[in-house]
């Protein structure tokens, strides 16, 4: 029975080892691996999508690059771990991804029940409805009896149930796994309405051959603060993701862009800018990163405004205005705690 005993001992050791990888030390793991694994969506135009060469682009992917720039000094050292709405948290919690940048709504049950850490909001969104213009509908209140296409595993199906229930309306839910299949069902006329976050609607509409024939209804039926998430149990890694996001917002507020970051580093008189860029203070080493972590982000990916305008801004096919996502100084909600 000696073989058995040592086999059991080996098995237990292996179990402990496997368990260890899902806990603390994400920063060391990422640096040893040399690649940052980001959980992203399977494809949402403007937010996360691969080009014909297989390279990933988009608003969320740029934040993933910003994280890689801070942690590894190389914005290209990322790997996109694609996930559907249903699999994203499992992939993050199982350790397949280091961080989740995937238009994910922060909610109580996800924060507390699913055991995630959320690190601020990189896009303030709300759920809307898109219908073909030919239906002649101008308000979501006219949707009684409609067939509605929704993506499964999202907050949208709960908001939808609540909205129709509280307005005393009925509907047929056509629940589809991915954004792409939902889009096909909507275009084929399987449903009258497509509902998801307003940014997602704009993104999906931009991929239609006739975007002008579809309208987004004025009602926004929910608050959808979208933000990055990490696993419980690694405070250092949580801090890093939090301050990567804050660095991009602060940089925009202070006027630091990818074009002028070198100049600002040399000539700025603003102590906060100097602390941000690692000229003064030791904030980098306190995070466990190099002193120029934020410089790397801004130099390679840009500040919040640059990331927004490049991927989803008014001059892109998605055409989203800053709206709630303008800086607080411009009447929006984007507001970073100070670098102090």
């Amino acid at each position: 029975m000696k073989t058995t005993t040592s086999a059991t001992a080996g098995a237990i050791a292996l179990a402990l080892g496997l368990a260890g990888s899902a806990q603390a030390g994400t920063l060391e793991d990422v640096q040893a691996r040399g690649v940052l694994n980001c959980v992203v969506s399977t494809g949402v135009a403007g937010f996360a999508y691969p080009d014909d060469a297989g390279k990933w682009h988009g608003f969320d992917v740029d934040f993933c690059r910003a994280t890689a720039a801070a942690v590894l000094g190389d914005p290209e050292a990322i790997k996109a771990v694609t996930s559907t709405g249903k699999t994203r948290f499992t992939k993050l919690n199982a350790g397949e991804g280091d961080v989740l940048w995937r238009n994910t709504t922060i909610t109580f049950s996800r924060d507390v029940g699913v055991k995630l850490r959320f690190h601020g909001v990189n896009y303030y969104d709300g759920q809307g409805f898109m219908v073909p213009k030919s239906l002649g509908i101008s308000s979501a209140k006219e949707l009684d009896g409609a067939s509605v296409c929704i993506q499964t595993g999202t907050t949208t199906e709960l908001n939808l149930a609540d909205y129709f229930h509280s307005n005393g309306m009925k509907y047929e839910a056509v629940t589809i796994e991915t954004n792409n299949e939902a889009r096909q069902n909507y275009l084929a006329g399987r449903c009258d309405v497509y509902t998801t976050d307003a940014s997602g609607l704009a993104s999906t509409r931009s991929t239609f051959t006739d975007p002008e024939n579809h309208v987004v209804l004025p009602e926004i039926i929910s608050k959808e603060p979208l933000g990055p998430a990490t696993r419980h149990g690694d405070d250092q890694w949580s801090d890093i993701v939090t301050w990567v996001l804050n660095a991009t917002v602060t940089a925009e507020e202070k006027g630091v862009t990818s074009a002028n970051v070198d100049d600002m580093m040399a000539n700025s008189k603003d102590p906060e800018v100097l602390r941000l860029l690692g000229v003064e203070g030791n904030q980098g080493s306190e995070l466990g990163l190099s002193a120029d972590w934020a410089y790397n982000i801004i130099k390679s990916v840009g500040n919040y405004g640059e990331i927004f305008e490049r991927n989803i801004g008014v001059n892109t096919p998605i055409g989203l205005a800053r709206g709630l996502n303008a800086l607080w100084t411009d009447g929006g909600l984007q507001y970073s705690p100070p670098f102090r």
Binding site: L14, L16, A19, A22, N93, A94, R231, G233
Partner: peptide, 14 residues
């Protein structure tokens, strides 16, 4: 081993 791994990982994230 598999069950233990599940239990330990669930415990690790609380």
């Amino acid at each position: 081993l598999a069950l233990r791994n599940v239990a330990v990982n669930l415990e690790a994230i609380g």
